[in-house]
Structure formats: structure tokens, C-alpha cells
Design a protein around this nucleic acid. Structure first.
Lengths: 204, 204
DNA sequence: ACCTGAACACCGTTCAAGT
DNA sequence: ACCTGAACACCGTTCAAGT
């Protein structure tokens, strides 16, 4: 066949197909992508830096939905809260992609820009420099930990069927189905923000 | 050859070899395990439920190091803190195994027993039932998020080499090398515990 | 530049055949 | 019960050959 007059593939369609496969099956493969796009496996390699490259495309696609306006809100704690919520929501839209992104090393300058902005905000508000990275790291951990939780099957938290965990079973029943993950994140986020406010007050 | 008079393989050696490979390369394969143990790939399947089974063995090996005595400490917040620290330390010993465990569904009754104990503790101390799972979820997210951070290369946090993130670069320099992850976890944990204490006081 | 077809090394898993 | 050898379907990746 040789080169077609109009390209059969492009990054956008490759990314979308990969994301479809991940949403459906929790994983993707390059042959599967090629098959869905009616093309040979090798063709995909003309557009993308292998499997790792496709994972970076998925990361870019997901993180594009993080709202940069969140970090511009005032006061600073509202900004941090909005950022964390938007960050988490972006992952929540495609929970099964999360483990894939975790496995691979980050190579996205866009992500670093977010962090630079966050550092600037916290310094401007008066946080001592040595506190800034631990604080951002803590928030990041919280969001990522919660994202993993979204990806995990709810049944991971199912009480043992043999009835050996009765209290866990009751505690799970006490929180509306599907709300546990959100409520857990909300609790952790509130705790984080309150602690950050306290830290700033003591430093200021 | 047929069956040897003494078994060449056992679960312990399979688990240890898998863990070695993960520590060295961030992943394992069954052929690699077989090769290190001087045995055919197919032999491994006589001992283990495939790759997923080996991942569960890794999970059991790591979580065996979580100290159950932590949850027996008093007061309750010291118990939760000790549990979280021990839980995280178990993962920190083999950070590259963390993403592997995240990918797979948990099938370990031992883990559930920990959670049952935690629920019991929080209820006994007076937390309202609907708060218990969000609280435990929050702590779990925190530990897992931090564990992922340990697995990630420190270079993930390296500032852009083009100097586009000067504040991030300075903030990173302000925290001792290799201490960022620990300090972030400590911050989040303190925030969580303080918020939990406040929640209990308001409920009680 | 972009697609095909064929190739390579690797993987997970199964199974009949041996002791 | 436990190991071997061979097989199967799948994977990621490369490359010469075509237009």
C-alpha cells in the first residue's frame, strides 16, 4: 500500500482509542489500538514513542482538565482547595487510567508549571520556604491516594463474606454507596487545610 | 526428569525472587523467576496461581511487616498514628513494589482484619458510625499516596532544566534531600489527626 | 512522511508426558 | 505431587520495502 494521500492516524485518535480501551478493560495494547483504527500495529509507531509515549499522551489528556484558574482564587487556602478538587476530578473521570499513570515516570512540563504556581502562592502568603515542599507533597499524596482509591474496585472494601468483619460491614453500610471515596477525600482535605492555616499562623 | 525427590521450588523462594527482581528492575516476570531458580517457567505454575498469585504473595510479604500492636496503643490517636507509620514503613522498604500492588485487586483477609480492628477502635472512642469509613479511607489514601511518592523517582520533582520553575527549584533546595517525601507525609498525618480530634470533640 | 508485512525477543498460561 | 518440553496466543519493538 505505501503512504496514503491522507494520513490514517493522528495523536488525537490514538489517545482517544487508548483511553477507550483503558476505560473498558483497565489497560490497552498497541495491537488493540491498531485494530480499532483499522491499521497495522507498526503504523502506530510512526506517530508515537512506543507504549510509554501513549501513556504520556493519556497523562496530558487527563491533566488538561485541571483548571488552572483554581490556583488564582483568593484567599490562598481556597486556591489550594480548588486546585486539589480539580486535580482529583480530572483523575476521577477515568479512574482506571490512574494505575497506568502511576507506573510511569512523569515527563510533562505542564505539570511542573502548576507546581511552580503553587510554590509562588504559598511563599507570597508567608509560608517559610522549608515548609513549602512538604506542604505541596502532602496535598499531592492526598490527591493521588484518593485517585487510586477511585480506581480500586469498591469490592476491595467489601467485608469478608465469612462475617469475620462485622463492624467493618456496618461502618460501610453507614456511608452511602459510592460516597465513601469522596467523603474520605473531603475529610483528608479539610484536615490538610486546617493544618496549613495553623502552620501559617504560627509562622507569621 | 519428572518429579524430583525433594521439591525444587517453594512459595518462599518464589516470593523472595520476585521481590528481588522488583527491587532491582521495578517489575518481575515468571520466566525471570524460573531462570534465577534454575527451573522451567512451567514449574512455577505448580506452586502459584499465575502472575496475580505472585503479586498477592508480594502483598502478603510486605504487609506482614505492619505492626498490629500499633492499633492497640492508647489514646486512640496515638494508635492511628502508629498504624499509619507502620503501614507506610512496610511499603517504604520496597517502594518499587507499590505500583504493582496498586494495579491488582486486594484479596488478603489479613488486611481486612486490620481495618476491622480500626473500626472497632474508632467506634469505642465515640466516633459516629457514618464518620468512621470516611476517616479510615482518608488515612488509607494518605498512606498509599505517600507510598507512590516513595516509588516515584525523585527526579519527578526535579525542576525543569530550562529554569522555567525557579521558585520550585529553591523550595526543593530548602528541604534536605530525600526528606521531602517523609516531611510531606508527616504534615498530612498531623493534619489528619488534628482534624480527627476536632471531629470527635464536636461529636462527643 | 506514513503505511505494510515480516521478523525478533519476550510474555502469561496450558497440557501431556515423565517420575 | 512436581518437573520438563512443547505449544498457543499475545505483547512491544524494529526494519526493509513500498508510495
Amino acid at each position: 500500500m505505501g503512504r496514503p494521500s491522507k494520513a490514517l492516524l493522528d495523536l488525537d485518535r490514538i489517545t482517544s482509542t487508548a483511553l477507550e480501551l483503558v476505560d473498558e478493560h483497565g489497560d490497552f495494547s498497541i495491537p488493540q489500538i491498531a485494530k480499532r483504527l483499522g491499521v497495522q500495529t507498526a503504523s502506530v509507531y510512526h506517530h508515537v514513542e512506543g507504549r510509554a509515549g501513549i501513556i504520556e499522551l493519556l497523562r496530558a489528556r487527563l491533566t488538561a482538565d485541571i483548571d488552572p484558574a483554581g490556583l488564582e482564587l483568593r484567599p490562598w487556602d481556597r486556591a489550594m482547595e480548588a486546585w486539589a478538587l480539580s486535580y482529583r476530578a480530572a483523575f476521577a473521570a477515568h479512574p482506571r487510567a490512574v494505575p497506568l499513570l502511576m507506573m510511569a515516570q512523569v515527563a510533562a512540563p505542564e505539570a511542573l508549571a502548576h507546581y511552580e504556581r503553587a510554590v509562588e502562592l504559598l511563599l507570597a502568603v508567608g509560608f517559610p520556604e522549608p515548609v513549602v515542599m512538604p506542604l505541596i507533597t502532602a496535598l499531592d499524596n492526598l490527591v493521588l491516594g484518593s485517585a487510586i482509591d477511585l480506581a480500586a474496585p469498591e469490592s476491595m472494601w467489601a467485608p469478608a463474606p465469612d462475617g469475620s468483619t462485622p463492624l467493618l460491614a456496618r461502618a460501610l453500610d453507614a456511608v452511602p454507596d459510592g460516597r465513601r471515596a469522596d467523603a474520605g477525600f473531603a475529610f483528608a482535605l479539610e484536615g490538610f487545610l486546617a493544618h496549613a492555616r495553623r502552620t501559617l499562623a504560627e509562622a507569621g
